[in-house]
Structure formats: C-alpha cells, structure tokens
Nucleic acid binder design. Sequence first.
DNA 1: TATATTGTTGCCTTTAAAGCAATAGTGATT
DNA 2: AATCACTATTGCTTTAAAGGCAACAATATA
Lengths: 297, 297
Amino acid sequence: MRYFSKVVEAGSFTQAGKAFNVSPSSLSRRVADLEKSLGATLLKRSTRIVKLTEVGQIYYNDVQHILNQIEQSEETVRSYQTTPMGRLRISSMVSFGDIVLLPLLDEFSALYPEIVLDVSLSDELSTLGRDDVDIAIRGGYAPNERVLAIKLMDNSFIPVASPRYLETHGVPENAMALKQHAGLYFKTPTGPTPWLCNKNGQWHDVSGPAVAISNNGAWLAKKACEGEGILMSTRWALASYLELGQLQELKFEHEVAITQSSTMAVYLLYQKQRYFVPKVKAAVDFLVERLQTTNAR
Amino acid sequence: MRYFSKVVEAGSFTQAGKAFNVSPSSLSRRVADLEKSLGATLLKRSTRIVKLTEVGQIYYNDVQHILNQIEQSEETVRSYQTTPMGRLRISSMVSFGDIVLLPLLDEFSALYPEIVLDVSLSDELSTLGRDDVDIAIRGGYAPNERVLAIKLMDNSFIPVASPRYLETHGVPENAMALKQHAGLYFKTPTGPTPWLCNKNGQWHDVSGPAVAISNNGAWLAKKACEGEGILMSTRWALASYLELGQLQELKFEHEVAITQSSTMAVYLLYQKQRYFVPKVKAAVDFLVERLQTTNAR
DNA sequence: TATATTGTTGCCTTTAAAGCAATAGTGATT
DNA sequence: AATCACTATTGCTTTAAAGGCAACAATATA
C-alpha cells in the first residue's frame, strides 16, 4: 500500500523507487501483486505516464486514510512510551493513604494530568505480587527478586497521650508503668499491636488494659485526644496532633515498640523492570522526592 | 497486525496459529517484531496466559479499526461495478424501523435478491460510529468528515388524541391547556419527552399528568386510540392512525414540541467512501427515492 | 509434586522480495 | 517522419524474510 501510494504521488515507478531505495522492477511487481489480489486494475500505465483508474482513485483515497491511521497509531504507542500517561494503579496502606498519600497525589495529578490515578487503599498485602498494581506502599516489604523496595520513611510506633489524660492519670515514669494505663490499640491485619519494651536486651509486654481496639487510626487518635487512654501509633500518623499539642509524645529510658523487629519502615514497592514505563518512573520519582527528603532517612 | 489481533482475541499464540494455519513460533516472532518496531510491549505473556498491556489495549483498538478499514476498502474495489450483492448491515431507530423501514425493505429485497439484509433496530447510537454498519438511520446526526447525512423526513412531534377522548375531555383551546390533559409519553434513550410550548420565544413545560410512559410507540398509540390520553409522536409514526381517523392532530397557535432544538429530522447516514460499494449505493438510492420524495423535504 | 500445555529459541527450509540486465513501448524532439 | 530518451515490464539470480521443527523453560492444574 505504501508502494502504491508513492507511485501515485510520484506519477512514476522510477521516482517512487528512489524514495524507498528500491528498484523500479520491485515496485512494479508489488503493485501488480496488489492489483491481482484486489482483482482490479488500479493504475493505467503507459511507458511515459502512470495515472489512476477510476477504482484506483477510490482505492487511493482509502489507502491514504489507512496509512494515516497506521502512522497515527504508531505515534500514539511511541508517545505513550515517552510521555507519562495512562492508568497508574497505586496500592497503599489505608492510614498512610489517608494521611500522607492522597493529599500528595492531588499535586501529582496537577503535574501529570494525562495520568489517571487508580488508588486502592488496603492493609492486605495480597494485592502486590500480581501484576494488578504498578506501585505499592507497605510497612515492610516482601523480599522478591523482581520487586524493588525504597524506604520512604520511618514507621516505628511512638506512645502518645493527651495533656488532659496525663494530668488526670499522671505521666508514666517509665515504660513498665504503661501497664497501669488505659490502652488504645491499633489493629493490623496480623492482629492488635501490644506494647513492648526492650529492657537490657529483654522484651517485656507492657500493654495496659484495653479501652478500644481498631484498625482505624483516626478514630483511635480522636479517643486519645479526648483523654481516653494512651495510644501507640506512627509518628507520621500523629504529626498533626503533636503539632497542635492535642497529643504529646511519651519518652522513656527504654525503647518502646509494637514489634521486636526493629526495622519498621514504610516502603515504596514497584517492579524493577516497570521503572522504565514513564508513568511509573514519574510516580516513583515524585513520591521518593516528596516523602524521602522531607520526613525520612 | 492481523497476527497480533488474532492472538489477542484467541488469548493464545497456539490458538491463533491454528486460525492461520501457521506455527506458533512464527506468530511469536512476528508479534515480537511488531513490538520491537513499536518499541513497546503489547502483550504480557506467561506460558499459560496472554493478555494485553495498557499500550497493547490502545494499539489493539487502533488495529481493529485499521483492519476493518482495509477490509472495507478491499470490498469496495472488489465489488466495483458488479451487481449489488452481499450482506448489507442496516441500523435503524426502533420505531422507524418497525413502521417505515422494514415494510420498504421487503420491496428492496425483491429488487436486489442477491443482497442479504442484516437489520438491527436500536435506539442507542452506540452502534453507529463503529464500522460495523453500512447504513444507519437516526434522528439527528453527529457531524463527521467521513460520514454523509441525508435528511429523509421531518421528525418533529405532533400532539394527537382520539375523537372519543376529545369528546369526553374537550378539545384543548391552546397549548397551555395541555397541562390539564392526560399524557402518554414517549421515552427516548435520553429519557421521557415532555410537552414543551414556545410562546413568544419562551419555552413552557405543558406536560399533563402521565397515564403511561413507554419507548414502545405502537403501544402508546393503541392507548391513545382507546382514548386514554393525548400522545405526542412523529407524523410518520402516526400516519396510519390519522388516515383512518382513529387519531386526530391537535393544532395550536403556539408551537408544541418535545425539544427546544428545532432541527428534528430523520437522517440516513453512511460512510462517504462506501457509496462506491454497489449494495450500499443501491440501498441509499432506493431509500432516498422512496422516503425523501414521498414524505419529506 | 507431577503433568500437561504453552511461549520461546536455535537451526534449517521455504517463500517472498529485491536487484540486474535486457526488452518493448511511448511521448517529445529534430 | 524518424529518432531519441526515458520508462515499465520480464526472466533470471541473489538476498532477506517468514515458516516449520524440535528442544527447552515456565506455569497453572490435577
């Protein structure tokens, strides 16, 4: 079809041949083949002039359009490979999504209007691993050959309480004293998180009596603000309350945590090879820049 | 492109290979070549499943369209200056199809016995725009470079009622009085059609209380004949009832309509280039002659 | 865990496309 | 009117692309 089209435009097999760096004989044969397969004569040839027949004219118009479409389609695919666009599927922990991610993504959308965001908030980690997500944000990472994990920020839990609570019930002198205090417990997919204390290499459960247990951080934080008990949650989840003074951090001589493994962190996960897809690269770079520099290391 | 398309549809290189009587290895190579030339991965392969990537999906849609165009173009050339024959796909609005088109097509079939009619009646316009139809009949048209629209007949709605109804409830003196009358409402895909009246450039809703609402014109007409209320429908849909005197038109000083846009008409649509295909030309010419001369301008 | 199916890859064969030289036809020039 | 210059075509050869086969690796199902 390209050959035919060029022959028509050049009005000559020889000229068209030059455009393709192909011998006229080959062009002649290809066009003849095309005519044979269509069962119609497209070109009226004389040794001196080549012009379209009636059907040829009709066919030429069609071909013109078709070639255009093909080129346009190829262009679309190519630009797709270079310009960040398309659907970007992000999966994140619920609390992190609500507090940190979603506000950031508004800015991201403004930067890359051609990217359609598809955000799933879930604390289940099953969503990754399959190919149904481009980027995942999780606390801790499943070590996998093909998956790259970037530490975004610290994810260790800190104990907090409202000034009112501390006034009423007293500030716990040390970690062990937590046992005597009302507890607001955060529940992960693996169950509620106890209060643990590392004292001289030994771990002790210092959980106090439970007032409430939930996987909804905001609700627990509200309860903590209202002085219902002591809460352990992540620094980033509590940041706004700490700033306003609604809650204050409790500091102890001995480390307090909710798990014995010390490397608690929020990780950004994506498939190594997918980093070359523009939309993924754009998102990874954006998130790393905004989250890693400001809050973490 | 054909290979790629088939692989997508079959969801398997092996299956697609069978369709072409070609080994899977060859298909695999061709598709790989295509991907290389586009510089993009079109298919996500695992030994067990083959599915489109995001770019792949976009490209597949384009390819689909392109292959269609090529096929149509070949058909145009091959059938050039032959007798009208083959499958002719017509899409029409339901009511128009029932009342006007289908009766006419019997005659058409007698004229061109070698044409196999494939008629789809639907009020959705989604069927158009695609290349899966040779001729479409719609009320109104989307202006398009390649699509030609011929006005077949007027499509404005007129109010009618049975003599008995008018006897019992009185003939409405003016358009405003319609509000007091029982209404039989025709429902289009965009919703029920209210009664509107243009009075000194102002549009007023003069809909009366609804007795029945339906997208089935015949059923509403029957109800109207039985004196259940006033019906607004197109002149061509009501023609037989008006002739028999079962229904009579209500005329008012001020224009009554079902939409504020005045250019209501039935259009015959077809792709400009396809007029060269004998079967299409035959049908367009036939329909225009039979419909445009008798009822319209 | 074993099995069957599928996509890919290396190697070879087949088929299509390209190149070359010769031929025949045609419009312009003399 | 005859010649000339140029062009499309055709037979033959070369080259490149596509296809087939067997072996292999991967994966979902039993």
